[in-house]
Every structure is written in structure tokens, then in C-alpha cells.
Design a protein around this nucleic acid. Sequence first.
DNA 1: ACTAAATAGGATAAAAATATCCGATTAAAA
DNA 2: TTTTAATCGGATATTTTTATCCTATTTAGT
Lengths: 145, 145
Amino acid sequence: MIFSKAIEYGIKASIYVAQQSMNGYRSNLKEISEHIDSPEAFTAKILQQLVKGGIIHSIKGAGGGFALEIKEIKKIKLADIVLALDADFLDSTCVLGLKHCSETNPCPVHHKYKGIKKETLYLLKNTTLLEMSTNLDKGLAYLKN
Amino acid sequence: MIFSKAIEYGIKASIYVAQQSMNGYRSNLKEISEHIDSPEAFTAKILQQLVKGGIIHSIKGAGGGFALEIKEIKKIKLADIVLALDADFLDSTCVLGLKHCSETNPCPVHHKYKGIKKETLYLLKNTTLLEMSTNLDKGLAYLKN
DNA sequence: ACTAAATAGGATAAAAATATCCGATTAAAA
DNA sequence: TTTTAATCGGATATTTTTATCCTATTTAGT
């Protein structure tokens, strides 16, 4: 509905890695894709992008995996993850795809949609990995079903 | 951000045809794709789907084109157009793609997103072709730029 | 040192979305 | 009745997204 598969997997993977990291564990690819119910090889690519984008850390070699520090978990927002996987996600935000949709040059749904757009942006920019992974940890939310 | 290209074009085409119909004109493919800034052949396919889906009417042969009746323009909602082009658009509404995301089985963003989801659904189900095409007609909104 | 277990990265494949082309059909107008 | 201007529908092409495979590299443990 709103995110691509790659972004969906990327967000879920980040949340899982964060939750495991909070409990002192590092996660490997197999474990991650099992827990977020995603194709392993594709998830590997996405994890690479997240590492390159500075969202998560990778540890190579036997016993390696992916991890995050608590300080980072607190700081990283949903928007950071999304942008690491699609740099111009926040650009094309007109519902009807107009390049320059604005208050003075609106598409026919602009005014009715702008509230939703604002709330969505707020959600992305203010939701932290911490709150999402905490909910997962407490059993108040799930990454698959 | 939210709709596919096909749906974007479909909505814009419907709005344009509605506006023209309100002024007593019928629109043909070439004219439509010019006014909504979309690829002609692809738009033809989308118009076919809209006709099959009962959203707009087509008139074959020379001087033909596409049109709508005022009564229909008043009745048709954004959601009707969207569903004519993607029957299960309103099904997969979990931000993280969970098959069965719900109040009791929520994904980690469910509770923060549900308000937005509700408003989006409301917008789709309550915005009429009439209001969109009227705004276009009055020069208060645009289909391209 | 050697082996095993991991991520990294390049090449490729498959599927879906977007887009084009062309012949068939329809209907108005000359 | 012929021509012309349209939509319809099937086949195909292109592009993007999703997904897989395989080799290289790194590192822990024996």
C-alpha cells in the first residue's frame, strides 16, 4: 500500500536486529529472514544496503551477523531506514504523481490529502527503532503471522 | 507514493472525462492522454478497464470517445475508480505487509498508522468525481504541470 | 595453518508493472 | 458504399522490482 517489498523487509529486519541487540544478541541472515518471513537472498541485499546506509552494523566471519548499539536504536527513525533504501522516497509525494503539486498548483486531491501526508511524514520522522523494537520485545507487536 | 501509475492515470483520465462531460463534450484517447500527460497506448488500456468496470462509457466509431453522465459523476467515488483498476487494493493495508495485521495481532507500526489508514479510507470512499472535476473546471486544480 | 561460518558483491533469473504496436471492429460522414 | 476516425483486444516489448546463485573475503575456533 505504501512501501515496496524491499522497504518492508528493510524495516522489519532493522526492528528485529534492534530487538535482538537490545537483548545482547547479534543476528545472522538466516535467523533474520526466518523471523521476518522474507526471502533469504533478497534480504541479504537489503541488509547490505542498510549497512552501507549506516543503519545497522555487520560483523563478518564465523559467528558474525548484524547488530545495533542502544544509542543508535534510540536515534534511528523510520524515515532513516526508508531513505537508506530509497533516497528519493520523500520527494514524489503527490497522490496523482504531479511533479510540482503544491498549494498554489494543486492536483484535484491535494487539499484533501495534505493532512494525511503531513501525518505520514510526522510518523516516519518521529517513530524510533526503539519504540518499535520494544513493542516487539514485549510481545505487543509482531513481524510475521 | 500510494498509487501505481495505472491508477494515477485512471483517476486523472476519469476526472478529465468528467469535466469535459459536464461541459457537454466527449473526450477521445489522444485528447485525454495529452491533458493528463500520460502515454497514449497505455492509457488506452486503462480506459478499457474503466469502461469494463462501469466507471466511464465509451462510444465507438468516428467522432466517438469517452463520456460520463452527470448523475454518475455525482455518484462515483475515488474508491470506485481505484477498485475498478485493482480489485484488491483495499485488502493489503498493513504498512509492513503482514497478511493478518489487526488490533490484536498488530505490526510494530499498526497503532501509529491506523489513524492515517482510516483517514485515507475515508478520503477514498467519500471523494466524488464531481468535486474533483469541478475543481479542475474552475481552475482550482490541475492534472499536469 | 586449516576449517567452518559468516557477510560482500557480482551476475543472472523471474515476475510484475509499464508501455507499444497492430489488426479487428464500429460508426459517422462524404 | 467508401472512407475516415474512433475504440477494442491480442500480442509483444521494455523497464523495474523482486528474487536467486555463486564466488570471494573475512574471521572465529580448532
